[in-house]
Every structure is written in C-alpha cells, then in structure tokens.
Design a protein around this nucleic acid. Structure first.
Lengths: 262, 262
DNA sequence: ACCGCCGTATTGTCTGACAATTGTGAAGGC
DNA sequence: GCCTTCACAATTGTCAGACAATACGGCGGT
C-alpha cells in the first residue's frame, strides 16, 4: 500500500513536525506511483490526522496530533455502540484521577492557566455558551497538569465527542455561582497539593454533572408521557436545552440529499 | 467537502452496518463529482475506519468501529508526544476501575469467556507468544464485562498501541505459574462479585507489570554503562527481550527508501 | 515604506481508459 | 444430481494528461 510507504518515509525520515513534504508530482515519482494513487494515500493520512494539506502551498506534517481523534468516538456514539452515560462513567473514572495527579505535578504555569480559566468563567457568568467553553478549558488545564499525554489525549477526545456530538446534551449550570465555587475549590485543592481532596472534589463535581444529564435525559425520553398536556416537558429542561444549543454547526444538514438514485 | 457529504448520507441513510454502498460511478454521479474525487473521500473514510473497500466487490460500512483507532496513539508514541510509562499510568487507572465494574456487571457469558482465556493461558504456559495473546484477551474480556463501550474502546486502543508499538516492550512473565495464579485470583474475585477485591487485585497486577517494564527500560537505557564489559546487560533483561520479540511485523522496514530526490 | 499586480509552484478536480479482483451463473464432466 | 471449471459482468484499483483554484514571493509603482 502506498500510504504505509509514506508513513515509513515519515518514520525514518528526518522530517520535523510541521515540515513540508515534497510536492505531489515529486513524491509520486519517488514512490513510483501515479499522482492519483498518491493523492488517495495522502488523503487517508490527512484523515488520520498525520498530514495537513494546504491548497496552493503544500502538504505538511501536523505539528501536534492531540485533539484529532474524537471523530471515532463520535461515530461510535452515532452508531450506538456507545451510550452517552458510558462516556460520563468513564469521565467519572478519569477526571478524579487526573486531578489527583495534577495536585502532585502541577507547575506554576498550569496553576496560572487554571486561574485564568476560572477568571474567564467568572466574567462570563450568565452567558452559558462562553461559560461552558471556559469550564471545559479549566478541566483541560487539569488534565494537562497531570502531565500524562495519553490521559490528556483521551479526555480531549471525550470532550470533543461530548461537545460535538449530535445530542449536544451538555447539562449545565442552573446556578453559576455554586458551580463556580465548586471549581474554585478544586483549584485551591490542587494548588495546595491536596491530592486526595482534589480527587474527592472532582468526583463530586462529575457526579453532579452526571445527575443533571440523567435528569435531562429522563425528561427528554418521556416529554409527554407525563400527564400534563403542556408543550414543554418541564421549564428546567427546556431552559437547559436552549442554553446548550449552539448556533451553526458545521454539520448542519443543509444539503438534504435523497438517497434514491433518480 | 465530499467526505462529509458521504458521512451525511451514512448518518441519515437507512444503511445498516455492514451493508454495501452504491458503486463508485453511481455514487460519483449522485454527488455530482468525479470518480477521482469521490475515491479520495472514500479513502479518507476508510482510513477513519468507517468504511471498508473490497476490490472487485464493493465498499461496505464497517460492522463495528471498535478496535480501529490505535494508530493515533501509535503515532503519538512515535512522535514522542506520549511516553510509554504514561500509557501504563493510564492503564493503572482504567483497568482496576474496569475490574470493579466487571465484578458488578459480568454476565455468565463474560465469565465463561474469561475462563476460556484462563484455560488458554494455562495450556500455552511456556510459549510466551501465545500466552501473552491469551492474557491480553483475558484483560479484554474484563473490560467487556464492565459493560462500558467507551472504556472498552479506549483500552483496546491502548493495548493496540502497546503491542504494535515500535519498542515492543511487553514486559512479561518471568514466572508463568505465579502470573497465572494472579489472574485466576482476579477471575474468582470478579465471579464472586467482590468489586473492591477485584480492584485491588488488578491494581497489584498492573503495578507489577509496570515495575517489570521499568526495570526493563532501565537496563535498556544503559546497556553498557555498567562497568561490566559483557555484551548483554543482564541475563534477565535479555531473556525478556527475546521472549517479547514477535516474528515478522507488518511494519518491518523492508523497503529502505532514501529520501534524497536524485 | 507600503501597496497592488503578476507569475510560479502547489494542491484540487475532472476525464477517460485499462488492469486486477471478485462474485455469479452457465456449461460440462463425473 | 452434484460438483468442477470456465467465461462474463460488475466493481475497485491504477494510470496518464489536462485544467482550475489557491497561496506565496518578487517586482514595480506609488
């Protein structure tokens, strides 16, 4: 296969991350294949996240591979090989462990970054959209502070799948103040190096979020099974739903295509 | 982009998993692009693991997406964004949790499968190659019994990266009997529903493997730094190294290709 | 010193053709 | 009647050549 030969080139090559590959005609000649075949192989590696092609410029080695793999999880969610609650269960395992490690390993920079995110959360209280972004980055800062790239990548993957996923049930913040204080407490515990405490605090936080999700799902599953004949299920649920609807996703099914041939 | 339109087709389509897509000329006409462009998009999705193309037959939707994503981790390892010890640290977090869940959720089938793997380990004691395969499958059975697809996929990814990775340091079994008994104990604890016990036992097992790896790495890092002028570092290390060398990997760099154009 | 124009290199797409592989069914032999 | 063998059709894989679209850098003008 052509792709694996290119991979071998990258492996053995003196190519630094971010450097440019030879042009397609050149590479095709080097490998002794047509440009079409070469392009297919390149496309595969692009989808893998290893390469990045820029029209009119060249194809480059991706400088960093983190944060690229969430599509797999998304598809699994879509094909119902994974349920959302499972992701939260996984999060409930990983995130406390990450906090525990972070309490031991966080550098001054890590703490600084967490603090910045906390600040961002504070100023955007009331704006659920912005608040959530900051909160996710706060959690990301924790996993980064844990100084374990594998764990960080895994969780970034999870976050990606959760936030980009179709259902978009990011259960969030009925009470900004309480939420913020929980996170600030986590920050302080990590800053003080209290590993066990940080672990407990994060566990509580994730469980809380999980409970919110569960309630939300329940009220979505039987919206009108309840005896009330009102349109909305419950005021709380609709509020959350509106909050978590982000505008203009790239995957908006604009071009409705019909499957039948003609 | 063409690929995302195909993804949309798969999403909204009534395509079951494993079913065949229309032929390339047909699909190209349907999407209004040339066959070349279509093929590039398909190739991308193939690399993503969503599709599978069979020459002379057709392209199919992959029936299952699990166990497909380990290449990302492999590349991260290769580009040194992740260190091996980090993977073990992650394993040390996930695997005990999986065992804990498995003790609560394992079905009769799950237990049966674990037992089979144990049996396989027993009969292949002495053959490190086969033994390791069975052991990995045993651990896989545990994560499957945990009934969390996300966790299972993550760990399969880890296993894949560990076993296919270049370093190929699967530190293993200086003592088959002791190793087997540890695993049998784990099985019994899970079968008895002793969640806490299973967790502890697996933690111990992973830590033991981690220690082996660490020793192995150390003796590989400074093979002749020690004052001895003998060829091999230590008898134990070489023995492990020989055991863990699997024959004929697909990624053998057979075709040495030189980078310079001409 | 700054701005717009243009040429060049590169990726993106299209067209048409042929090779390689696979599944199928029909013909023939047992 | 059943099995093997062969030829055919459908499909993916590969190739060659051309043109469009895009980005970068140099050049000249202001």
């Amino acid at each position: 296969m052509v792709a694996s030969r290119i991979e071998a080139l990258v492996r053995s090559g003196d190519l630094k991350r971010g450097s440019r590959l030879p042009s397609e005609p050149r590479l095709a000649e080097m490998l002794g294949v047509s440009r079409a075949s070469l392009r297919e192989a390149l496309k595969g590696l692009v989808f893998l996240g290893l390469l990045k092609a820029r029209a009119g410029d060249g194809t480059y080695l991706q400088p960093s591979l983190t944060s690229m793999a969430s599509r797999h999880l998304q598809w699994m969610l879509l094909l119902e090989e994974i349920k959302y609650m499972e992701l939260y269960e996984l999060r409930e395992i990983l995130e406390p462990a990450a906090a525990q490690l972070a309490a031991r390993r966080a550098t001054r920079d890590d703490l600084e970054q967490m603090k910045d995110m906390l600040e961002g959360m504070k100023v955007s209280a009331g704006d659920a959209e912005a608040y959530i972004r900051y909160e996710l980055d706060f959690h990301g800062a924790i996993t980064r502070a844990a100084k374990n790239g594998a764990m960080h990548s895994t969780m970034q993957m999870m976050y990606g799948a959760l936030s980009e996923g179709r259902h978009r049930v990011h259960p969030l913040v009925p009470d900004f103040a309480a939420n913020w204080e929980r996170h600030e407490r986590i920050y302080k515990l990590i800053a003080n190096g209290d590993a066990a405490g940080a672990r407990r605090a994060v566990t509580a936080d994730v469980k809380y979020a999980e409970k919110l999700l569960q309630d939300n799902l329940q009220s979505m599953q039987n919206p009108n099974t309840r005896k009330s004949t009102k349109k909305a299920a419950t005021p709380a649920a609709t509020k959350v739903a509106r909050q978590t609807t982000r505008g203009s996703s790239a995957t908006t099914s604009k071009s409705h295509f019909h499957w039948s041939p003609k």
